[in-house]
Design a protein around this nucleic acid. Structure first.
Length: 270
DNA sequence: ACTTTAGCCTGTCGGC
DNA sequence: TGCCGACAGGCTAAAG
């Protein structure tokens, strides 16, 4: 389940292998991703030199000397480095072949991921309306508090809204609300200013620790270096329904909010 | 402007 | 053992 820490882990994993190389070719085997892969993408990227690998929200931005490849991992996507002649599996939907003899390979069993080309990625319709980066300077408790005034939606769905703040998916939303001691069912508009300060800190803390652990691997996430993420061991509530809270021993509960499972501790989170 | 719902997609798992 | 429905959840678009 790639959320911000997993995408960042992937970014760091592939960066040393691809920056400074030139794109020899692009091979798309299945164009049916979340949005159809544009037929011209191979020609736009072929021959270009890769200058950097960035990240905006959960999008990887592979910047070349003439335009940027935008890659989203969706739910089950992975990017990793292989040799040119490595045989492709059925879910290996595209390769970016590099002049180094390696390829950046994209694997995504459920095809919720995406692959675009853009001259100006931040102006792309899918990226232009995104909220601030949670680890950036324009994100803090007062920002969340301002944005939440008048909002009836529960605070868990509120912080998962990419127009509010990016990168906080289902795992880290549950985790940060636990760390902040906030009940996920509470209306966003009814969370006090001071509690948003605590929540913003919790979001930053959990994302930072998850990045340092290489992300969370529940089933099928592997970083660009092929290593799973180890943050699962630090999860306090996510996927722990029926287990005991490590702080107060209360049984962790699971509820459904916005068609997604939320995990929380009834006594630590009020 | 906000809220809710449906839908995309396939591997895995529990129940019968 | 095999079948089948539920579930996982990123995100957008459309409807209310």
């Amino acid at each position: 389940m790639p959320e911000l820490p997993e995408v960042e882990t992937s970014r760091r994993g592939i960066e040393p292998w691809i920056v400074g190389t030139r794109i020899a070719d692009v091979v798309v085997r299945d164009r049916r991703l979340r949005w159809p892969v544009a037929p011209g993408i191979e020609g736009r990227l072929r021959g270009r030199r890769i200058e950097s690998v960035g990240r905006r929200a959960k999008y990887l931005l592979i910047k070349t000397d003439n335009g940027t490849a935008i890659v989203h991992l969706g739910m089950t996507g992975n990017v990793f480095i292989v040799d040119h002649d490595a045989p492709a599996g059925i879910h290996d939907h595209f390769d970016i072949l590099l002049d180094s003899g390696r390829s950046l390979r994209f694997r995504d069993p459920r095809r919720f991921g995406s692959f675009f080309f853009s001259k100006n990625p931040l102006a792309h319709p899918l990226l232009s309306g995104l909220g601030p980066e949670p680890l950036g300077t324009d994100f803090d408790g007062d920002y969340l508090w301002r944005r939440s005034r008048g909002r009836k939606v529960n605070v868990k769905q509120f912080i998962m809204d990419a127009k509010v703040v990016v990168g906080v998916g289902n795992i880290y939303a549950s985790e940060s609300l636990f760390l902040a001691g906030i009940n996920p069912k509470r209306s966003a508009g009814r969370v006090a200013r001071q509690r948003y300060a605590v929540l913003a800190d919790a979001i930053e803390d959990v994302l930072d620790r998850a990045i340092r652990a290489g992300g969370t691997t529940l089933r099928d996430f592997y970083g660009g270096d092929g290593e799973p993420g180890y943050f699962r061991q630090q999860l306090e509530v996510y996927d722990r329904e029926g287990e005991h809270c490590r702080h107060c021993n209360t049984v962790i509960r699971a509820i459904v909010q916005g068609q997604r499972t939320t995990y929380y501790c009834k006594s630590c989170q009020t």
